[in-house]
């Protein structure tokens, strides 16, 4: 019980929780929408060799080692004016940003890399879901005069609901489990700007040898993830039932 009381009193746990929450709030919607849009374009507009190439290229970050990823992104995000990304934004007249050396840019950078890493995986899942949608539905929609946008919102999106639920749930769980990216890229810094719950658990267990405390934080993490997953299930089910009643 003492460990749980210590967790509640620890100010650093609160900041880790807030950072993890911000990471999830930014990453999950962006990667879900982005992967869905890319999958739609590839499934409906680019069913050719170029589409295959793009699909493979987008999957490369998924299978790339995180240590390597962090090393490369550290170079790209160098804070001096000669850094790759700073050079690019400099072309548009923008001031160089100290990406990994300031609080908000560091958290933003971690989110950006997280999205870059996950989009390919979720795109493949969406793509597989879209390939299962019968072409006849799109043909019927075309006959009824529906344009591309209308077809996406009235045919694709409703039929992808189970896939979307899976992607959102997996994305949320992964976001709360984010560890290797911050461990290798920032170590939770600068300050505590990118400290996440799992990194706190790791440090408590393997750097500070407080196994009981680390277990207590892990249980808190489990409770949060379970609660969010339950909430997502309820929201998706309610919408589904609402539609059935309407029909």
């Amino acid at each position: 019980m003492g460990n749980y009381q210590a967790v509640l009193k620890d100010p650093y746990i609160t900041s880790s929780l807030i950072n993890t929450g911000i990471y999830a709030v930014i990453v999950v919607p962006v990667q879900t929408v982005l992967s869905m849009v890319i999958a739609y374009v590839l499934a409906r507009k680019c069913k050719n060799r170029f589409g295959n190439f793009v699909r493979s290229a987008l999957f490369i970050p998924v299978i790339t080692s995180m240590v390597l990823t962090a090393a490369v992104w550290r170079l790209l995000l160098a804070g001096d004016p000669e850094g790759v990304i700073n050079s690019i934004i400099g072309l548009f007249g923008m001031e160089p940003v100290n990406w990994l050396g300031s609080s908000w840019p560091a958290l933003f950078s971690v989110c950006l890399i997280g999205i870059w890493k996950n989009v390919g995986y979720f795109m493949v899942i969406f793509y597989a879901g879209m390939m299962d949608i019968p072409v006849s539905l799109y043909e019927a929609a075309t006959v009824d005069g529906a344009g591309s946008a209308r077809q996406f919102f009235s045919v694709t999106l409703p039929l992808l609901k189970p896939i979307t639920y899976l992607v959102v749930t997996l994305g949320t769980i992964w976001s709360f489990q984010v560890f290797d990216l911050v461990y290798t890229l920032t170590g939770g810094g600068p300050g505590r700007a990118t400290m996440t719950l799992v990194l706190t658990i790791y440090n408590s267990a393997f750097k500070d040898f407080k196994m009981g405390y680390a277990s207590a934080v892990s249980m808190v993490l489990l409770a949060i993830v379970l609660f969010i997953s339950f909430l997502q299930k309820v929201v998706f089910r309610e919408r589904d039932e609402g539609r059935r009643k309407h029909v």
């Binding site: 650093y12 300050g191 505590r192 750097k207």
Partner: peptide, 19 residues
């Protein structure tokens, strides 16, 4: 000592960032 040094390091980082 790890946790103490870590806390000191993070606080100094925040100082160097002007926070």
């Amino acid at each position: 000592s790890y946790k103490i040094y870590d806390s000191l390091y993070k606080n100094l980082q925040l100082m160097m960032m002007g926070e």
